[in-house]
Simulated assay, not measured.
Amino acid sequence: MSEPYVPDPDGRTESLGDLLGEVTRDISTLFRQEVELAKAELSQSAKKAGKGAGMFGGAGVAGFMALLFLSIALWWGLGLLIGNVWSAIIVAVIYGIVAAVLAMRGKKEVEEITGAPKTAETLKKVPEAFKTSEDSR
């Protein structure tokens, strides 16, 4: 007759309740770690989004202030040389270019936001961990 099945090499056997408790603890730990990873990644993405939004805001304020103060002075100075209409057009084009450059830099910052790629990648692996060897056949 053959020896009885003993899952533990030390000869100890664990109850089904102990095994389920261990699996539950492992799953709980896994999900806590995933939540922490997601928090870290989203925090980093939020900082980049804030930086990009700040640049957009800075572009708007800088564009407005420049148009308000410098354009009046430049318009008045050029108006003495070439006339008020042409000097106003030149001033508007110059500050439009400045605002466009700042807006493009802000857009670049916003496009660099990645979200939580590591969390998404590891969450895809979770269902595979629950597959038994019979499921993979």
Rank of each mutant, 00 (worst) to 15 (best):
M1V: 01
M1P: 01
E3P: 04
P4G: 01
P7C: 07
D8T: 07
D8F: 00
D8W: 01
D10Q: 12
G11V: 01
R12E: 00
T13L: 12
E14T: 04
E14D: 04
L16D: 12
L16M: 12
G17H: 13
G17Q: 14
L19V: 14
L19Y: 05
L19S: 03
L20S: 09
G21K: 02
E22Y: 05
E22M: 02
V23P: 00
D26C: 01
I27S: 06
T29L: 11
L30T: 09
F31E: 05
V35Q: 14
E36C: 02
E36V: 11
E36D: 15
A40M: 09
E41P: 07
L42P: 10
L42N: 13
S43C: 04
Q44R: 15
Q44V: 09
K47T: 11
K48G: 04
A49F: 01
G50N: 08
G52D: 06
G54R: 05
F56M: 14
G57H: 05
G58R: 08
G60E: 01
A62F: 02
G63P: 02
F64H: 13
M65L: 15
M65W: 12
L67W: 07
L68C: 00
F69P: 02
L70Q: 08
S71N: 14
I72D: 13
L74H: 02
W75N: 11
G77C: 05
L78G: 11
L78A: 07
G79F: 03
L80R: 15
G83C: 07
G83W: 13
N84I: 00
N84T: 08
S87F: 03
I89L: 12
I90Q: 02
V93I: 14
I94D: 03
V98S: 01
V98M: 04
A99E: 13
A100S: 01
L102G: 06
L102D: 11
L102M: 13
A103V: 03
M104A: 14
M104E: 10
R105G: 03
K108Y: 09
E109C: 08
V110R: 07
E111L: 08
E112Q: 15
I113A: 00
G115C: 12
A116D: 05
A116P: 10
P117N: 04
A120S: 14
T122Y: 06
T122P: 00
T122V: 13
T122C: 03
L123G: 01
L123A: 05
K124T: 06
K125S: 09
K125V: 06
V126D: 03
P127Q: 10
P127F: 10
E128G: 05
F130D: 01
T132D: 08
T132M: 09
S133E: 15
E134I: 06
E134Y: 05
S136I: 15
S136R: 15
